[in-house]
């Protein structure tokens, strides 16, 4: 049975020009989706079906895109949830966070919570899907990978380590059809009430270089950070594990 894969895409924002573009991580979600399902991939967007940026995603080789037509002020998560529930979906691919809007990075989590699915964050690759299980490579710092196996269906967010998006071909994007689907949505009042202002550049902490030789600098740049105070808890009960996290948060003054 072919896999039923959905890639969620948003309208990105170029960091230099501030202009709309296909988002870096979302286009990686489309790239991975194309690798797994080829043109059977569903690419889903909530927003304006006439947005020209959608053509940039379609130019990657999609015959069509599905758009859940909504105003900008609407919360995308419930709209997506209702749509995804109706379909028999195996994997939902998203970016880690959007380049515009709230950019909270919460969509995969809220969606997973609503659907009752697991989330795998920062995926580098999905190696294989077999017998209702997917072998997934998670991206860790310094080029490290962690192999995990997850039961379908699940939501995966794409790390920058995932395969970069292929070139978008103008004519392919031009020819793609956009299927606009009517949907019910509620206004995200909290979002609407927000005020946006230009971010202040935070002062940078001065970095004192202790390394004296090139070899030391190389080591400092590549070595695994050695966490002195961490501890690995494997056999304790969930309650004990939660307690440890809670204590740490208190100690670090995250919770007061």
């Amino acid at each position: 049975m072919p896999l039923n894969i959905v890639s969620l895409v948003s309208v990105g924002r170029h960091p230099q020009s501030g202009r709309a573009r296909r988002a870096e991580q979302d286009s990686r979600a489309v790239e991975l989706g194309l690798k797994l399902a080829d043109t059977a991939l569903t690419v889903l967007h909530v927003g304006n079906p006439d947005d020209p940026i959608l053509r940039q995603y379609a130019g990657m080789g999609l015959p069509s895109l599905t758009v859940l037509k909504q105003e900008d002020s609407v919360d995308a998560v419930p709209v997506l949830q209702r749509f995804l529930e109706q379909k028999n979906i195996d994997i939902v691919l998203t970016g880690v966070r959007a380049e515009s809007g709230e950019s909270s990075g919460m969509v995969p989590y809220l969606l997973a919570h609503a659907l009752g699915w697991p989330v795998v964050a920062r995926v580098a690759d999905i190696v294989a899907v077999k017998d209702g299980k997917a072998e997934v490579l998670l991206a860790l710092p310094r080029g490290q990978r962690r192999a995990v196996s997850i039961q379908l269906p699940f939501i995966a967010s794409m790390d920058h380590a995932a395969e970069a998006a292929r070139q978008s071909a103008f004519a392919v994007g031009l020819r793609a059809t956009v299927e606009s689907v009517e949907s019910v949505g509620e206004v995200d009042q909290i979002r609407v009430d927000w005020q946006e202002s230009v971010a202040k550049i935070r002062p940078k902490r001065l970095k004192t270089v202790k390394a004296k030789t090139a070899a030391e600098r190389f080591k400092a740049a590549t070595a695994k950070p050695e966490g002195g105070t961490g501890k690995v808890m494997k056999n304790e009960t969930p309650k004990e594990k939660a307690r440890a996290i809670f204590d740490l948060l208190l100690e670090e003054k995250v919770i007061r």
């Binding site: 170029h14 230099q16 202009r19 070139q167 978008s168 071909a169 103008f170 004519a171 392919v172």
Partner: peptide
């Protein structure tokens, strides 16, 4: 380029920069 999306090497990146920033190097 327009039908296949197969501009080799840095081609795709340069074109994407031109589209998003109106200059080839994405400044």
């Amino acid at each position: 380029t327009m039908e296949k999306g197969k501009t080799p090497n840095k081609g795709a990146e340069i074109l994407e920069n031109i589209i998003a920033t109106d200059n080839p190097n994405g400044y």
